[in-house]
Every structure is written in C-alpha cells, then in structure tokens.
Design a protein around this nucleic acid. Structure first.
Lengths: 214, 214
DNA sequence: GTCTATAAGACGATAGAC
DNA sequence: GTCTATCGTCTTATAGAC
C-alpha cells in the first residue's frame, strides 16, 4: 500500500494515459498496427518509451485500448428503435449521427477501417456478436416498416451498409475528398451540406421524405 | 549484351515479377506499407529475399508498382460521358462497374483505401491531377443534365462520393459484411443483388429509374 | 513512478560466390 | 540470374538505478 501524497493521486496517471492513447491513435492511423512503433508513439506523447510500457504492457494491449475507445464512441449515440417509430425520422437521425461522427472523429473511423480491411484480427469477435446482433434487430424493424407499407421494399442490410459506406467515406478518404473538392479542411457548412445530400438521396431512394423537403 | 538461351527469354523474369507483385499485394493488405516485410513477401512468392531486391530496388519501388497496377485497373473500364448521354444509363453502368470491381478485386480496393487513409503519401499527386480532373468533367456533365431537368438537383460530387463509398465498402469491409450477413464468401447471386439494390436506392434518390424497374 | 541503458531479435538492403 | 551470408539499423521489451 502506498500512501498518496497530496498531488491529486491518479491525475498524472490519467493525463499520461490520455496522451499515450492520443499519440497511439495518430501513429496507428499513419502506419497501421504493425507499422506503428512504440518509440514514435512515446515521442509523440512526450514520454520515454519505458513509461509507455509501464502503462501498457505491450503494443497489442495499447492497440486494443485504442480500439475499445472507438467502439465506445460508436455505441455512444445509438438509440434503440421499434416498429412503432417513424421510419423517416429514425433513418434521418441515423444518417446525420453517422455523418457527424465521421467528420468529428475521422481518426477513429480510420483505425476501425484499417482493422477491418486487414481482416479484423482483433475485432472478429465483436463483429460476430455485438455488431451482428445490432444489425439483426435493425433489419427486423425495417422489415416490419416495409410490410406496413411505410417505405419501399429494399434489403434492410444493404441500406445499413449503404449508410455506413457513404458516411465513413468522408472520414476515411478525407484526403481524397478534400483534394477533389479543392478545400483545405471540412467546415460546418460542408458538413451540413453533405448530411442533407445523403439524407435526400438515400431516403428518397427508400421512398421516404427527409424533413427539409416536407 | 547477353545472348538469350532458348528458354523463352524474359518468361522467367515475367513470372517472378508477377509472383512478387501478387505476394506483395497480399502482404500490403494485411500489414500496410510500413508493416509489411520484404522477407514475408519473398517467402510468399517462393523466392529468397535477395531476388526480390534484384527485381525491385527497394520496398517503396515495389509498393509503387503495386499501386500503379491498381490505378490501371481502376481506369480500365471508365468510359467518357457527354451531356448528350442518357443519365440513367450512364449512372447505372457506373454503379454496376464499380460494384463489380469491388467484388472481383477486393485486394486492390483495400490497398488503395489504406494508402488514402494514411494520407496518400504516394498518391497525393495522382489525386491532385488525374483524379480531380476526372471528377471535374463528370460533375460538369451531371450539372448540364440537372439544368436540362433530366434528374433531381443534387450535388454531383456528393453523388460520385456516394457511389464510391457504397461500392468500395463491400470490398474494404468484406470481413464485416460477410460476418454480419453470415456468409463465408460472396457469390454471383449476392453481387447481382447488391448491384441492383444500389442502383435502385441511389438512382431513385436522383430522380432516375433503373432499367430493371422500367 | 520515471528514466537510462541495453538485451534479443527483426528489419531493409547488399556483397559476393555460384 | 540465383542464393547464402552478413552488415548496420531499428524494433519491442525489460532491467535496474534514481
């Protein structure tokens, strides 16, 4: 047992861990798990490499901590939906939530993307359990909406993949998008513009009307 | 000058280069540029590491050769379009072409995705010149279609990004998609199903009618 | 809890025999 | 054109002084 000196015990620890996780995110985006070096992560966090190994026993543990943060972020704003909900309202909310997340947390999206591209070595189990379950409940609700004639008959899973793919593209391929539209960075106006465009095309394609066209 | 023995000179060379490029693609998908090792690439190609350095002077040269193959593949089926073309026909063809490419060449899509995610260190120039130009000419044509009342007024660039994002998702995130839909691999039926669904939702969202609904 | 110093091995690349 | 052996560097991880 160590008696804590009056330095707000744990504060330094908390700050160091946050700096390491933040630095690790940046390096993992730039070079992937295998390509990122703990040396570079430590330097970016402003710590000697040995301190990093004090907080995280090895590179894989650190990587998994980064992934866990990303999953938490992804789950943070996902509300449950029921057959009684209004499809237009729910789907518009979902598109806008995913779009906003892509623009505000591109690094999280990129690390997740790289992990899946490489065959999800760390997230296989998450995909097989949590994520599959999440999609299953949504597709069931969408199916009842279709049977009730509330929207066009589409494959619900394809709709979810379409929304995922379309929104994540702006995060993962930000470099390409910004170069093509000749901008230095995204601004609030563009975020709203993209969200509205995606709602329009996707929802009209499903036989729904987005709120701004009512 | 070396006089070629009657072993079909260049045949062995061609075969080795192809095997190296193929092995490199696989390793670059799994670990990215920095994470992939020339050792592993050589082993996968069934050659000693030194031979790899005989054909490609270093890892970056090999990586750029892989990227060039991917760009060529991408450009292989892209026809020019004019204002006189039928929007529905052109856009359906484009969605189906991109979708098919994603399903038949997922590794190419994944390497391209990883390169862009990491900030396009090797493809910055390609994005700034060729790709920007390509998008520019398409957006201009789509714009004239809109002004002629042939389709709903949407942002042409967003439409292109939507098609890119939606189709590439099935290649880059194949691991996720297959897990969620509980399949071992894509089959021809699923490819046609996805292509049709994407055409339906996106084209109806643009005020166009896909051929199978006419 | 922090940091220097270093172990043990993998890395890209090359020299040089065949 | 092929392959073994090896150089010098960078890698993860740890030992041990403070």
């Amino acid at each position: 047992m160590t008696r804590g000196k009056k330095y707000q015990p744990g504060k330094i620890r908390e700050r160091n861990i946050e700096q390491i996780l933040n630095a690790a995110e940046q390096e993992f985006v730039l070079h992937g798990f295998k390509g990122a070096s703990t040396q570079a992560i430590a330097e970016r966090a402003g710590l000697p490499k040995a301190n990093l190994h004090y907080y995280f026993k090895n590179k894989l543990t650190l990587y998994n901590a980064v992934l866990e943060n990303i999953i938490d972020l992804w789950n943070s704003g996902l509300q449950d939906i029921t057959a009684a909900d209004d499809p237009a309202e729910v789907i518009e909310k979902f598109i806008r939530f995913k779009a906003r997340l892509s623009f505000t947390h591109p690094r999280a999206s990129k690390i997740f993307a790289t992990e899946i591209i490489q065959g999800a070595p760390q997230l296989k189990e998450h995909l097989r359990t949590d994520q599959r379950e999440w999609v299953k409940t949504r597709t069931q609700v969408i199916h009842t909406w279709i049977e009730a004639g509330k929207m066009r008959p589409i494959d619900p899973a394809n709709l979810i993949f379409l929304i995922w793919g379309a929104t994540q593209h702006y995060a993962d391929f930000d470099c390409q998008v910004l170069t093509v539209i000749n901008k230095a960075e995204y601004d609030e106006e563009y975020i709203e513009h993209v969200s509205q465009q995606l709602c329009e095309i996707i929802m009209l394609g499903c036989g729904l009307t987005p709120s701004h066209l009512k």
